[in-house]
Amino acid sequence: MIELLDAFGTALVNGLMNALMVVVNLLPDTLSDAFQYRFMQRALLTSVMVGAICGLLSCYVVLKRWSLLGDAISHAVLPGVAIAYLLGWPFFIGAFITGALTSIGIGAIERHTRIKSDAAMGLMFTAAFALGIVIISKIASSTHLMHILFGNVLGVRESALLLTLVASIIALLAVWLFFRPLLLYAFDPQQAQALGFNTSVIHYGLILLLTLTIVASLETVGIILVVAMLITPGATAHLLTDRFRTMMLISVSVGVSSAVVGLWLSAMLDVASGGTIVLVATGWFFMALLLSPKYGVLARQWRRWRMG
Protein backbone atom coordinates (compact mmCIF):
# COMPACT_ATOMS: atom_id res chain seq x y z
CA MET A 1 0.00 0.00 0.00
CA ILE A 2 2.71 2.46 1.05
CA GLU A 3 4.82 1.45 -1.94
CA LEU A 4 1.86 2.17 -4.17
CA LEU A 5 1.43 5.63 -2.63
CA ASP A 6 5.14 6.23 -3.02
CA ALA A 7 5.02 5.29 -6.67
CA PHE A 8 2.00 7.50 -7.17
CA GLY A 9 3.77 10.40 -5.47
CA THR A 10 6.84 10.00 -7.63
CA ALA A 11 4.75 9.82 -10.78
CA LEU A 12 2.82 12.93 -9.74
CA VAL A 13 5.99 14.87 -9.02
CA ASN A 14 7.53 13.80 -12.31
CA GLY A 15 4.40 14.77 -14.18
CA LEU A 16 4.29 18.17 -12.54
CA MET A 17 7.96 18.77 -13.23
CA ASN A 18 7.58 17.79 -16.87
CA ALA A 19 4.62 20.15 -17.20
CA LEU A 20 6.63 22.92 -15.58
CA MET A 21 9.54 22.28 -17.95
CA VAL A 22 7.25 22.65 -20.95
CA VAL A 23 6.57 26.21 -19.75
CA VAL A 24 10.20 26.87 -18.86
CA ASN A 25 11.41 25.67 -22.27
CA LEU A 26 9.27 28.31 -23.94
CA LEU A 27 11.59 30.91 -22.40
CA PRO A 28 14.77 32.08 -24.18
CA ASP A 29 17.74 29.74 -23.69
CA THR A 30 19.65 32.19 -21.50
CA LEU A 31 16.82 31.95 -18.96
CA SER A 32 15.91 28.29 -19.27
CA ASP A 33 19.48 26.93 -19.35
CA ALA A 34 19.75 27.06 -15.57
CA PHE A 35 16.80 24.70 -15.24
CA GLN A 36 18.16 21.82 -17.32
CA TYR A 37 19.47 20.12 -14.17
CA ARG A 38 17.15 17.84 -12.24
CA PHE A 39 17.95 19.47 -8.88
CA MET A 40 17.10 22.89 -10.34
CA GLN A 41 13.77 21.55 -11.58
CA ARG A 42 12.95 20.18 -8.14
CA ALA A 43 13.95 23.50 -6.62
CA LEU A 44 11.79 25.38 -9.11
CA LEU A 45 8.70 23.26 -8.48
CA THR A 46 9.09 23.57 -4.70
CA SER A 47 9.63 27.31 -4.92
CA VAL A 48 6.56 27.81 -7.09
CA MET A 49 4.35 25.91 -4.65
CA VAL A 50 5.81 27.64 -1.59
CA GLY A 51 5.41 31.03 -3.24
CA ALA A 52 1.79 30.24 -4.04
CA ILE A 53 0.64 29.06 -0.60
CA CYS A 54 2.66 31.69 1.25
CA GLY A 55 1.10 34.32 -1.00
CA LEU A 56 -2.36 32.93 -0.34
CA LEU A 57 -1.96 32.80 3.45
CA SER A 58 -0.18 36.14 3.60
CA CYS A 59 -3.45 37.91 2.76
CA TYR A 60 -4.91 36.71 6.05
CA VAL A 61 -1.69 37.39 7.95
CA VAL A 62 -1.53 40.99 6.74
CA LEU A 63 -5.24 41.80 7.11
CA LYS A 64 -5.50 40.21 10.56
CA ARG A 65 -2.32 41.94 11.76
CA TRP A 66 -0.80 38.57 12.46
CA SER A 67 2.69 39.39 11.21
CA LEU A 68 4.22 39.02 14.67
CA LEU A 69 2.18 35.87 15.29
CA GLY A 70 3.48 34.42 12.01
CA ASP A 71 7.00 35.26 13.14
CA ALA A 72 6.29 33.60 16.49
CA ILE A 73 4.90 30.40 14.98
CA SER A 74 7.72 30.09 12.49
CA HIS A 75 10.30 30.25 15.28
CA ALA A 76 8.27 27.98 17.54
CA VAL A 77 8.30 25.30 14.83
CA LEU A 78 12.02 24.66 15.38
CA PRO A 79 11.85 22.55 18.58
CA GLY A 80 9.01 20.57 17.04
CA VAL A 81 11.10 19.76 14.00
CA ALA A 82 13.99 18.77 16.25
CA ILE A 83 11.85 16.52 18.43
CA ALA A 84 10.17 14.94 15.42
CA TYR A 85 13.64 14.27 13.99
CA LEU A 86 14.64 12.62 17.28
CA LEU A 87 11.55 10.41 17.37
CA GLY A 88 11.48 9.67 13.67
CA TRP A 89 8.09 11.36 13.18
CA PRO A 90 7.15 13.43 10.16
CA PHE A 91 8.39 17.03 10.68
CA PHE A 92 4.92 18.42 10.31
CA ILE A 93 3.46 16.74 13.37
CA GLY A 94 6.16 17.95 15.74
CA ALA A 95 6.08 21.40 14.17
CA PHE A 96 2.36 21.70 14.54
CA ILE A 97 2.39 20.61 18.16
CA THR A 98 5.01 23.14 19.24
CA GLY A 99 3.54 25.85 16.98
CA ALA A 100 0.08 25.38 18.45
CA LEU A 101 1.38 25.06 22.04
CA THR A 102 3.25 28.32 21.63
CA SER A 103 0.22 30.17 20.27
CA ILE A 104 -1.94 28.80 23.08
CA GLY A 105 0.73 29.86 25.58
CA ILE A 106 0.80 33.36 24.10
CA GLY A 107 -2.98 33.61 24.40
CA ALA A 108 -2.94 32.37 28.00
CA ILE A 109 -0.25 34.83 29.12
CA GLU A 110 -2.10 37.65 27.36
CA ARG A 111 -5.42 36.84 29.01
CA HIS A 112 -4.36 35.95 32.52
CA THR A 113 -1.47 38.28 33.30
CA ARG A 114 -0.81 41.98 32.85
CA ILE A 115 1.81 41.23 30.16
CA LYS A 116 0.80 42.72 26.79
CA SER A 117 0.56 40.60 23.65
CA ASP A 118 3.79 41.75 21.97
CA ALA A 119 5.83 40.90 25.05
CA ALA A 120 3.97 37.59 25.44
CA MET A 121 4.78 36.66 21.84
CA GLY A 122 8.40 37.75 22.01
CA LEU A 123 8.87 35.82 25.22
CA MET A 124 7.25 32.59 24.08
CA PHE A 125 8.71 32.30 20.61
CA THR A 126 12.27 33.11 21.59
CA ALA A 127 12.00 30.52 24.36
CA ALA A 128 10.72 27.88 21.92
CA PHE A 129 13.41 28.85 19.41
CA ALA A 130 16.12 28.58 22.05
CA LEU A 131 14.86 25.13 23.02
CA GLY A 132 15.00 24.10 19.37
CA ILE A 133 18.57 25.31 18.98
CA VAL A 134 19.66 23.50 22.13
CA ILE A 135 18.11 20.21 20.97
CA ILE A 136 19.51 20.48 17.45
CA SER A 137 22.99 21.37 18.70
CA LYS A 138 22.94 18.05 20.54
CA ILE A 139 21.64 15.85 17.72
CA ALA A 140 22.69 17.33 14.40
CA SER A 141 25.43 19.28 12.68
CA SER A 142 25.42 23.04 12.33
CA THR A 143 24.95 22.79 8.55
CA HIS A 144 21.73 20.93 9.26
CA LEU A 145 20.65 23.79 11.54
CA MET A 146 21.58 26.33 8.88
CA HIS A 147 19.44 24.49 6.34
CA ILE A 148 16.40 24.52 8.61
CA LEU A 149 16.91 28.18 9.49
CA PHE A 150 17.70 29.54 6.05
CA GLY A 151 16.52 26.91 3.62
CA ASN A 152 18.39 24.73 1.18
CA VAL A 153 16.23 24.69 -1.89
CA LEU A 154 18.91 23.39 -4.23
CA GLY A 155 19.20 20.28 -2.08
CA VAL A 156 15.47 19.57 -1.89
CA ARG A 157 14.81 15.85 -1.72
CA GLU A 158 11.83 14.21 -3.34
CA SER A 159 10.20 13.47 0.04
CA ALA A 160 10.33 17.17 0.96
CA LEU A 161 8.93 18.08 -2.43
CA LEU A 162 6.07 15.69 -1.89
CA LEU A 163 5.39 17.17 1.56
CA THR A 164 5.26 20.64 0.04
CA LEU A 165 2.89 19.39 -2.62
CA VAL A 166 0.53 17.81 -0.09
CA ALA A 167 0.68 20.91 2.13
CA SER A 168 -0.12 23.13 -0.85
CA ILE A 169 -3.12 21.04 -1.81
CA ILE A 170 -4.45 21.03 1.76
CA ALA A 171 -3.97 24.80 2.12
CA LEU A 172 -5.66 25.48 -1.22
CA LEU A 173 -8.58 23.19 -0.40
CA ALA A 174 -9.03 24.70 3.06
CA VAL A 175 -9.05 28.26 1.74
CA TRP A 176 -11.54 27.26 -0.93
CA LEU A 177 -13.88 25.22 1.29
CA PHE A 178 -13.86 27.68 4.20
CA PHE A 179 -13.58 30.84 2.14
CA ARG A 180 -16.55 32.65 3.69
CA PRO A 181 -15.94 31.77 7.35
CA LEU A 182 -12.27 32.73 6.93
CA LEU A 183 -13.16 35.98 5.19
CA LEU A 184 -15.73 36.97 7.80
CA TYR A 185 -13.38 35.99 10.61
CA ALA A 186 -10.56 38.06 9.13
CA PHE A 187 -12.84 41.04 8.54
CA ASP A 188 -15.00 41.06 11.65
CA PRO A 189 -14.63 38.19 14.14
CA GLN A 190 -17.36 39.57 16.43
CA GLN A 191 -19.84 39.44 13.57
CA ALA A 192 -18.73 35.91 12.71
CA GLN A 193 -19.39 34.85 16.30
CA ALA A 194 -22.79 36.59 16.34
CA LEU A 195 -23.76 34.67 13.19
CA GLY A 196 -23.08 31.43 15.04
CA PHE A 197 -19.69 30.57 13.51
CA ASN A 198 -17.31 28.91 15.94
CA THR A 199 -14.55 31.50 15.91
CA SER A 200 -12.12 29.55 18.07
CA VAL A 201 -12.24 26.68 15.58
CA ILE A 202 -11.62 29.15 12.74
CA HIS A 203 -8.82 30.80 14.75
CA TYR A 204 -6.96 27.57 15.41
CA GLY A 205 -7.73 26.31 11.92
CA LEU A 206 -5.98 29.36 10.51
CA ILE A 207 -3.02 28.80 12.86
CA LEU A 208 -2.91 25.18 11.68
CA LEU A 209 -2.81 26.36 8.07
CA LEU A 210 -0.01 28.80 8.90
CA THR A 211 2.00 26.06 10.59
CA LEU A 212 1.46 23.78 7.62
CA THR A 213 2.67 26.48 5.26
CA ILE A 214 5.71 27.22 7.40
CA VAL A 215 6.72 23.57 7.54
CA ALA A 216 6.21 23.25 3.79
CA SER A 217 8.53 26.24 3.29
CA LEU A 218 11.22 24.86 5.57
CA GLU A 219 13.49 23.61 2.79
CA THR A 220 12.95 26.51 0.44
CA VAL A 221 13.39 29.71 2.39
CA GLY A 222 13.83 28.35 5.91
CA ILE A 223 11.87 29.20 9.01
CA ILE A 224 13.44 32.64 9.50
CA LEU A 225 12.80 33.97 6.04
CA VAL A 226 9.39 32.34 5.60
CA VAL A 227 8.00 35.19 7.68
CA ALA A 228 8.91 37.53 4.86
CA MET A 229 7.01 35.33 2.40
CA LEU A 230 4.00 35.42 4.75
CA ILE A 231 3.99 39.22 4.96
CA THR A 232 5.50 40.79 1.86
CA PRO A 233 3.20 39.38 -0.87
CA GLY A 234 0.04 40.28 1.08
CA ALA A 235 1.35 43.73 1.96
CA THR A 236 2.24 44.34 -1.71
CA ALA A 237 -1.24 43.24 -2.83
CA HIS A 238 -2.92 45.37 -0.15
CA LEU A 239 -1.30 48.45 -1.73
CA LEU A 240 -2.70 47.57 -5.15
CA THR A 241 -6.38 46.67 -4.72
CA ASP A 242 -9.58 47.14 -2.74
CA ARG A 243 -10.97 43.69 -3.55
CA PHE A 244 -10.21 40.61 -1.48
CA ARG A 245 -10.16 38.11 -4.34
CA THR A 246 -7.95 40.40 -6.43
CA MET A 247 -5.69 40.79 -3.43
CA MET A 248 -5.32 37.01 -3.21
CA LEU A 249 -4.56 36.79 -6.91
CA ILE A 250 -1.91 39.53 -6.77
CA SER A 251 -0.45 38.12 -3.57
CA VAL A 252 -0.07 34.63 -5.05
CA SER A 253 1.47 36.12 -8.20
CA VAL A 254 3.96 38.09 -6.13
CA GLY A 255 4.81 34.96 -4.13
CA VAL A 256 5.30 32.75 -7.19
CA SER A 257 7.19 35.30 -9.27
CA SER A 258 9.52 36.14 -6.38
CA ALA A 259 10.24 32.46 -5.88
CA VAL A 260 10.99 31.85 -9.57
CA VAL A 261 12.98 35.04 -10.21
CA GLY A 262 14.79 34.68 -6.88
CA LEU A 263 15.76 31.10 -7.60
CA TRP A 264 17.04 31.97 -11.06
CA LEU A 265 19.02 34.98 -9.81
CA SER A 266 20.55 32.96 -7.00
CA ALA A 267 21.70 30.31 -9.49
CA MET A 268 23.13 32.94 -11.82
CA LEU A 269 24.90 34.93 -9.11
CA ASP A 270 25.76 31.89 -6.98
CA VAL A 271 24.24 33.37 -3.80
CA ALA A 272 21.85 32.01 -1.14
CA SER A 273 18.49 31.26 -2.74
CA GLY A 274 16.24 31.85 0.28
CA GLY A 275 17.62 35.35 0.79
CA THR A 276 17.42 36.15 -2.92
CA ILE A 277 13.77 35.07 -3.08
CA VAL A 278 12.88 37.33 -0.16
CA LEU A 279 14.83 40.24 -1.66
CA VAL A 280 12.93 39.92 -4.95
CA ALA A 281 9.62 39.96 -3.04
CA THR A 282 10.77 43.05 -1.16
CA GLY A 283 11.62 44.62 -4.52
CA TRP A 284 8.03 44.01 -5.66
CA PHE A 285 6.79 45.63 -2.46
CA PHE A 286 8.80 48.81 -2.95
CA MET A 287 7.74 49.03 -6.58
CA ALA A 288 4.09 48.83 -5.45
CA LEU A 289 4.75 51.36 -2.71
CA LEU A 290 6.16 53.76 -5.27
CA LEU A 291 3.89 53.09 -8.24
CA SER A 292 0.49 51.92 -6.94
CA PRO A 293 -2.14 53.99 -8.76
CA LYS A 294 -4.17 54.65 -5.62
CA TYR A 295 -1.99 54.14 -2.56
CA GLY A 296 1.47 54.71 -4.09
CA VAL A 297 3.83 57.47 -3.01
CA LEU A 298 4.07 58.95 -6.52
CA ALA A 299 0.29 58.98 -7.03
CA ARG A 300 -0.15 60.67 -3.69
CA GLN A 301 2.46 63.32 -4.48
CA TRP A 302 0.84 63.87 -7.87
CA ARG A 303 -2.58 64.39 -6.30
CA ARG A 304 -1.14 66.75 -3.72
CA TRP A 305 0.70 68.70 -6.41
CA ARG A 306 -2.42 68.95 -8.57
CA MET A 307 -4.52 70.15 -5.66
CA GLY A 308 -1.94 72.91 -5.19
Partner: peptide, 25 residues
Protein backbone atom coordinates in the same frame (compact mmCIF):
# COMPACT_ATOMS: atom_id res chain seq x y z
CA UNK B 1 -25.68 42.55 15.58
CA UNK B 2 -24.55 46.01 14.58
CA UNK B 3 -21.22 46.82 16.19
CA UNK B 4 -19.79 50.23 16.87
CA UNK B 5 -17.91 51.76 13.99
CA UNK B 6 -14.53 51.26 15.66
CA UNK B 7 -15.02 47.48 15.78
CA UNK B 8 -14.22 47.14 12.08
CA UNK B 9 -11.10 47.55 9.95
CA UNK B 10 -12.31 50.03 7.37
CA UNK B 11 -9.31 49.56 5.08
CA UNK B 12 -10.20 45.87 4.61
CA UNK B 13 -10.39 45.23 0.85
CA UNK B 14 -14.16 44.67 0.48
CA UNK B 15 -16.91 46.67 -1.19
CA UNK B 16 -20.11 47.94 0.41
CA UNK B 17 -22.05 45.15 -1.28
CA UNK B 18 -19.68 42.44 -0.05
CA UNK B 19 -19.78 43.84 3.48
CA UNK B 20 -23.56 43.71 3.62
CA UNK B 21 -23.48 40.24 2.05
CA UNK B 22 -21.47 39.21 5.11
CA UNK B 23 -24.73 39.43 7.06
CA UNK B 24 -26.03 36.55 4.91
CA UNK B 25 -23.09 34.19 5.53
Amino acid sequence: YMAQREAIEWDFPVSVWETVMGGRF
